[in-house]
Simulated scan of single mutants.
Amino acid sequence: MRISELSERSGVSVPTIKYYVREGLLHRGELTSPNQARYDESHLDRLRLIGALTEVGGLSVAATRDLLQVIDGDQRPELGDLMGLTLKRVDGGPGDGGDVSEEDLAAADALAERHGWHVHPGSALREELARVMAALEGSGFELTPEWLDGYADAAGQTARLDHDYVEGVTNLDGVLRTVVVGTVLGERLLASLRRLAQASEARRRHGG
């Protein structure tokens, strides 16, 4: 198909398609003349993936390019490494926002230990958890064990569902894509479900 048809079918403008090609997000079409190229279903599929990561997932073009290079690369990362690489690119990535104290890290470690989670001492996610917990307490929010453990139980169940889903995908490219898209959009899905559930619970308890 020509670029005009690719644009029509994907809903992505021609200038944006050319921009994605220049930035390395979209592979080039097959040249049919010095000024014309032919595109196929793989380009349409890639544009849909880019749209899911950028428009819905909220990733930057640079972060999206990094993840697509992992999917397209010759060296396949371990599943856990791929999830970690993806998580670092969601919402700017864990590890941003300054140092955390040893006391904050100890509180995060205690929560993880209660739920049997293995957390590497140098993990950016460990620091992010400590930072968020400290910010909640600093704002006057009481972090009761019941509230924290309830959230951790929900997170653990979600993690098990994620891994069960990935284990059902047998194609390696499918696994890579499922992890990237599932991790990025799964963050948005959880946030949306939480807000809907909060609104519904408020109506159930208080009416209106």
Rank of each mutant, 00 (worst) to 15 (best):
Met1Arg: 03
Arg2His: 10
Arg2Gly: 14
Glu5Cys: 01
Glu5Lys: 08
Leu6Ala: 05
Gly11Gln: 04
Ser13Gly: 14
Ser13Asp: 07
Pro15Gln: 07
Pro15Met: 04
Ile17Val: 15
Lys18Thr: 02
Tyr20Glu: 02
Arg22Thr: 15
Leu25Pro: 02
Leu25Met: 15
Leu31Pro: 04
Leu31Arg: 13
Leu31Lys: 12
Pro34Gln: 01
Gln36Tyr: 10
Glu41Gly: 06
Ser42Asp: 11
Ser42Pro: 01
His43Lys: 10
Leu44Gly: 12
Arg46Trp: 07
Leu47Phe: 04
Leu49Arg: 14
Leu49Asn: 10
Ile50Met: 08
Gly51Asn: 04
Thr54Ile: 15
Leu59Met: 05
Ala62Phe: 03
Thr64Asn: 00
Asp66Asn: 07
Asp66Ala: 06
Asp66His: 12
Val70Asp: 08
Asp72Pro: 03
Gly73Cys: 07
Gly73Leu: 07
Asp74Thr: 14
Gln75Lys: 14
Arg76Cys: 06
Pro77Leu: 10
Gly80Cys: 06
Asp81Ser: 06
Leu82Thr: 09
Met83Ala: 15
Lys88Val: 07
Arg89Lys: 15
Val90His: 08
Asp91Lys: 07
Gly92Ile: 08
Gly92Arg: 05
Gly93Ile: 09
Pro94Glu: 09
Gly95Phe: 09
Asp96Thr: 14
Val100Met: 01
Glu102Pro: 05
Glu103Tyr: 00
Leu105Ala: 08
Ala106Ile: 03
Ala108Asp: 00
Asp109Ala: 08
Asp109Phe: 02
Ala112Phe: 11
Ala112Arg: 08
Glu113Trp: 07
Arg114Ser: 12
Trp117Gln: 11
Pro121Trp: 06
Ala124Gly: 04
Leu125Gln: 13
Arg126Gln: 00
Glu127Pro: 01
Ala130Met: 09
Ala130Leu: 04
Arg131Ala: 04
Met133Tyr: 00
Leu136Asp: 14
Glu137Asn: 10
Gly138Leu: 02
Ser139Met: 09
Ser139Asn: 10
Ser139Thr: 04
Ser139Trp: 03
Glu142Arg: 06
Thr144Val: 09
Trp147Glu: 03
Leu148Tyr: 02
Leu148Ala: 13
Asp149His: 11
Gly150Lys: 09
Tyr151Val: 09
Tyr151Arg: 03
Tyr151Trp: 14
Tyr151Asn: 11
Ala152Gly: 13
Ala154Val: 15
Ala154Asp: 08
Ala155His: 05
Ala155Met: 15
Gln157Glu: 13
Thr158His: 14
Thr158Phe: 14
Arg160Ala: 12
Arg160Gln: 14
Arg160Asn: 10
Leu161Tyr: 06
Val166Glu: 10
Glu167Trp: 08
Gly168Glu: 02
Gly168His: 09
Val169Ser: 06
Val169Arg: 00
Thr170Glu: 13
Thr170Leu: 09
Leu172Thr: 13
Asp173Ser: 06
Asp173Phe: 05
Gly174Ala: 10
Gly174Leu: 07
Gly174Trp: 08
Val175Met: 10
Arg177Lys: 15
Thr178Asn: 01
Val179Asp: 04
Val180Ile: 15
Val181Thr: 15
Gly182Thr: 10
Gly182Ile: 08
Gly182Leu: 05
Thr183Cys: 14
Leu185Met: 11
Leu185Thr: 09
Glu187Arg: 13
Leu190Asn: 01
Ser192Thr: 09
Leu193Pro: 00
Arg194Phe: 00
Leu196Asp: 03
Gln198Glu: 14
Ala199Pro: 06
Ser200Asn: 07
Ser200Thr: 13
Ala202Met: 03
Arg203Lys: 11
Arg204Pro: 01
Arg205Phe: 02
His206Tyr: 10
His206Thr: 02
Gly207Trp: 00
